[in-house]
C-alpha cells in the first residue's frame, strides 16, 4: 500500500514513532539507605555533617562535595524549616509527575541543615505561599522507604 499524503504531512517526510522504555533499579548507597530508613521507621530526617566545613547535607552525602572529605558524622535535623523558594507546576507531563497539576514545589531549609531540601508543598492555597514562611514535614501513613514518604511540607502556624 502506498504511503498516504496524510502520513507524509506537510513536510513530505515520514515520522517514525518509537519509545525507549528500560527498567532501572538504582542503588541508594549507605547514606541514602539510612536516610530513608530513618524516615520510614521513625519519621525523622537525618543528614551528614562535614568534619571540616561543618555543612550539614540533606539528603546525606558520604563525601563532602566542597571539601572532598569522607563524612561519617550523622545529625538529626528538624522536620520544620524555612521556605527558600517555590513554584506551582501547572502543566501536565504524564509519567513523571507525582500529582496531577497544579502542584506546589519548594526548597526548604530544614532547621539545622546546610542544604535545602526540594519537596512538595501541601495544605496551602498557591496564592498563600510566601518565601520565608515556616513549613513542616507531613509524613505518609504508609511509608515505603522513598522520597515521597514525606507527603509534603505544610505551613507551620506559630
Amino acid at each position: 500500500m502506498a504511503v498516504s499524503s496524510e502520513e507524509l504531512g506537510n513536510t513530505g517526510t515520514l515520522k517514525y514513532p518509537s519509545r525507549i522504555r528500560l527498567p532501572y533499579t538504582w542503588h541508594a548507597g549507605k547514606a541514602g539507605s539510612r536516610f530513608y530508613q530513618e524516615i520510614k521507621d521513625h519519621c525523622k530526617i537525618w543528614g551528614t555533617k562535614c568534619p571540616r566545613c561543618g555543612w550539614v547535607y540533606v539528603p546525606p552525602r558520604e563525601t563532602c562535595p566542597r571539601c572532598f572529605l569522607d563524612i561519617d558524622e550523622w545529625v538529626e535535623v528538624g522536620d520544620a524549616g524555612t521556605l527558600l523558594t517555590y513554584t506551582i507546576t501547572r502543566y501536565s507531563v504524564p509519567g513523571i509527575q507525582p500529582h496531577e497539576p497544579p502542584y506546589a514545589l519548594g526548597i526548604i531549609k530544614l532547621d539545622g541543615a546546610g542544604s535545602g531540601l526540594v519537596h512538595l508543598l501541601g495544605e496551602i492555597e498557591p496564592e498563600d505561599i510566601r518565601v520565608g514562611m515556616r513549613v513542616q514535614a507531613v509524613f505518609r501513613e504508609v511509608r515505603e522507604g522513598n522520597y515521597l514518604d514525606i507527603k509534603y511540607f505544610k505551613p507551620l502556624r506559630s
Binding site: 538504582w26 542503588h27 541508594a28 548507597g29 549507605k30 547514606a31 541514602g32 558520604e62 563525601t63 572532598f68
Partner: peptide, 26 residues
C-alpha cells in the same frame, strides 16, 4: 552488583584512590 554504593560514591572511591596513589589532593 555494587549494591553498597550510590553512583557518585562509587566514583569517589576510584577518585580517592587515584589521588592517594599520586599523593595529591583534590
Amino acid at each position: 552488583k555494587n549494591t553498597d554504593c550510590k553512583g557518585q560514591e562509587l566514583i569517589s572511591i576510584a577518585v580517592k584512590r587515584a589521588l592517594e596513589s599520586a599523593d595529591l589532593t583534590m
